[in-house]
Simulated assay, not measured.
Amino acid sequence: MNPQGSASLKAELLGAIPSLRAFAMSLSGNIDRADDLVQETLVKAWSNLGSFTEGTNMSAWLFTILRNIFYSEYRKRRREVADPEGQIAARLASAPSQNSHMDFLDFQDALQQLSPDQREALILVGASGMSYEEAADICGCAVGTMKSRVNRARNRLGQLLAMASEDGADGDTAWNPAEPAMDKLLRAGE
């Protein structure tokens, strides 16, 4: 690897950090764990930079590494009792006056209720803007499977958010699916 190529690879690695962090946050649901996942991904990528082929998709390579780290840890921890970090504290906190913040919390909660495969598919295609083909390559599945996962995730997320808006029907404004960020995920792949 020449010094010029090395500098461009470093720049690509650094440029991918915000997307990696968002993806890690969507998988883990915990900002501290997301930061750890991104750090582990970058360390692993840096130590294996020699195996990366310049000119190929750096983001896809990094997303695959992050995904593999997450699922390896998930398999190790699935027999452990889940620690509901922050969930109890969120219930004890006083409710903010801004409806959009509460809507986002409902959305975040609903997103975490999706299965990991569905959540991953929705984030890759809907939030990260990847094509079905790129997302299928990252997840190691067929394009049709990816389309199905996105569709099921979108439908399930809509159901969960509809239930959340019915639960909170105390005179406050219900969740508005026309809000851009949430709507983008719900319409992923259309």
Rank of each mutant, 00 (worst) to 15 (best):
N2S: 14
P3A: 13
S8T: 14
E12N: 11
E12H: 08
L14M: 14
A16Y: 02
I17E: 03
P18A: 08
F23K: 02
F23A: 03
L27M: 14
L27E: 01
G29H: 05
D32C: 08
R33H: 10
D35V: 09
D36H: 05
V38Q: 01
Q39P: 05
Q39S: 13
E40R: 04
L42A: 03
S51F: 12
N57W: 10
W61R: 03
I65G: 02
I69H: 08
Y74E: 10
R75N: 10
K76G: 11
R77L: 13
R79W: 15
D83I: 15
Q87K: 15
I88L: 15
A93R: 13
A95W: 06
S97W: 07
S97K: 09
H101V: 09
H101Q: 10
D103L: 02
D103Y: 04
F104Q: 04
F104C: 04
D106T: 00
D109V: 03
A110P: 00
Q112L: 09
Q113H: 05
R119L: 03
L122H: 00
L122W: 00
E133M: 04
A135N: 04
A135H: 03
I138W: 02
C139L: 12
C141L: 05
A142T: 05
V143C: 01
G144E: 04
R149Y: 06
R149N: 03
V150W: 02
V150N: 01
R154C: 01
G158M: 06
Q159L: 06
L161I: 03
A162P: 00
E166G: 08
E166D: 14
D172H: 15
D172S: 14
A174M: 11
P177G: 06
E179A: 11
M182R: 07
L185P: 07
R187V: 04
G189Y: 01
